[in-house]
Design a protein around this nucleic acid. Structure first.
Lengths: 340, 340
DNA sequence: ACTGGCACTCTGTCATCCGGAGTGCCAAAG
DNA sequence: CTTTGGCACTCCGGATGACAGAGTGCCAGT
């Protein structure tokens, strides 16, 4: 059975009212607040059908209706258009992001901005190393048998690792190493480096091969293979808005999930489709987040995507507004990155 | 009126029981659980005195007693000895901290370890730039009019800034700049650099002076003056242990405070006395944290202190255990830093 | 196909009640 | 002077019941 237009309209009204008031919405209140042009009794019939189809449910007999996850899904997919941002919001975004001094700063500002605008928990992934290219590799002698390897990526990320050398290496050899490493790797996608790094070691004169091998293993192991993704988080205090009503009584599981970087990355990290993604309640694979929704998208300079960002909140959230904000922030951040 | 030994013993018993059970403790239960050698009635008299003096209070008439902030304070100062760590804890600390690949990694591991061991919210400050020395300054050309300035500090911190140059600068000039900057600044305390940096500009040949001035201003402004302190946070989910009983009903204010880096720095950042500091409830200047206690200490290689770390929890916390853990972790981190 | 009416159900709240735990005080004992 | 046992009193927390309000489902009528 397909739902006619009015039933969809009723669903939309229920979602909007419930999101706003946080209370189950009844037929009477609905016809009063929206111009549906029909009587409560009619709405009740429609509601019965919507409930049958699984889009809404009653917390208990003779209470109003509340959207189900499926109801929100239908709402997001077919009933809502993306809200335009208010000029105030646009200005807030611009003002917030100018004046960032480095990548850390950009990411921190972004995540706070996002949390503030959406009034939810915000997550921003640092530009992924896997999607970055090497801009420059620097070797800094710390002692005769220790180097600090600093990698600067085109996305602005800077990573450093301590390298323990097998034996003392004189400064002029370091200069030589640096030159050779950069010649080979600068400008290359990090993902493409493994064979090149191997080549570096192979081409090495025997006397410096051990040193180069050390360097190579640190490079490969900690920067390419275990290429650690970094995250910033903000707005956890927003979880307490709306009392303990959202998240079925306890923030515990949600806070626990937010502590796990791996989980967060799963949430915002699937960057394949360049469009905004919305995961509602049960659609999250993480059990702890069954009562939460996540709106996420990728960002990056131009059309490429180097990282993800998003927000997490109760399933009862303002989807159109949140989606609009997340997209806008992602675009601004992308532009900002493009300027480097 | 001074408190005799038995009254102090009663106070200790009350604190210990309350911390454990989370429930107001009455005179009867007290004599049963501890060998006080006196009757409940006697204990009641002592309690009356302790209440008079402000060390305990009754949530309501005819309920048991609960320690006040002053009571906890007295307990911490005079009634508790620092617990020795269990071998299991020691092992956990060691196992957790070996294998860290860089400073970020050390800090993150530390903060998680601390949160896990104390079962509270943990905060770790990155080694303060203000207390670090310059190990090396690196200049990486990004384009002809842009440099990336990378500063490597002896504490392992690495900071990078983008420098917009007034005009194109050829690579060999960059090499020269790099050499001059390092000759002057390497090994110096960051706090001592301002006059040296000024000297660098003054000594510059006129044709490169504008470039050097640019560099100098970025250095001074963003690394020395606005030397940003960084923090890591973990264990917020622990706030939900003990139900909503701690923190008088809502986590809101606490979560809000935890979002503010400035506030956190105030909490753990006062590094003057090298000993552990405990702030109980009202002793926190931050209103939001009036129902929380903070245990913090400084850490650093050897006897010097380069940063702070600590935990935050309900006033009802296991002070001896927490203090011991915080100290131990700080010592281990210090040792780890000393190895670099 | 929609509407008005009506009986029914369930929640949330308020008042009341009662057992339990704990206190404060007092008089007696050490 | 300190400690102890006894006793009346207070207050919390849970259980119970009554009740108004909101909302529904269903049915007959338009």
């Amino acid at each position: 059975m397909s739902l006619d237009d009015r039933k969809l309209e009723v669903l939309r009204a229920i979602v909007e009212d419930y999101v706003e008031t946080q209370e189950p919405v009844g037929s009477k209140a609905l016809v009063e607040r929206h111009q549906l042009g029909v009587s409560p009794a009619t709405v009740r019939n429609d509601m019965a059908v919507l409930e049958e189809e699984g889009y809404i449910r009653q917390p208990h007999t003779s209470a109003g209706r509340v959207p189900t996850d499926a109801g929100y899904r239908l709402f997001v997919d077919r009933l809502s258009k993306v809200k335009a941002l208010s000029p105030a919001e646009r200005r807030a975004i611009e003002r917030f992001l100018i004046g960032a001094v480095d990548l850390d700063d950009v990411v921190h500002r972004t995540v706070r901005l996002l949390a503030q605008l959406t009034r939810q928990v915000a997550v921003v992934q640092y530009p992924s190393l896997a999607r970055s290219s090497v801009r420059h590799l620097e070797l800094v002698p710390i002692s005769t048998t220790r180097l600090m390897l600093v990698m600067i990526a085109d996305t602005g990320r800077v990573e450093q690792r301590l390298v323990e050398l097998p034996g003392p290496v004189p400064p002029e050899d370091v200069t030589d190493l640096r030159r050779r490493v950069n010649e080979k790797l600068a400008g290359k996608k990090l993902a493409d480096t493994p064979p090149l790094v191997q080549g570096l070691v192979d081409d090495c004169a025997p006397e410096s091969r051990a040193t180069m091998a050390c360097l190579a293993s640190v490079l490969l192991e900690t920067l390419v293979e275990r290429s650690e993704e970094r995250l910033a988080l903000a707005g956890t205090a927003n979880l307490t808005r709306g009392g303990v009503l959202d998240f079925q009584g306890t923030l515990r599981p949600v806070l626990e999930a937010l502590e796990e970087e791996v989980i967060l990355l799963k949430l915002i990290g699937d960057l394949e489709p360049s469009t905004t993604r919305v995961r509602i309640g049960d659609e999250n694979e993480i059990d702890n987040l069954r009562s939460a929704s996540v709106v996420s998208t990728g960002y990056g300079p131009g059309a490429t995507i180097v990282g993800g960002l998003g927000v997490l909140g109760p399933t009862r959230m303002d989807y159109p507004g949140t989606i609009a904000t997340v997209r806008a922030v992602a675009r601004y951040v992308g532009d900002l990155l493009a300027q480097n």
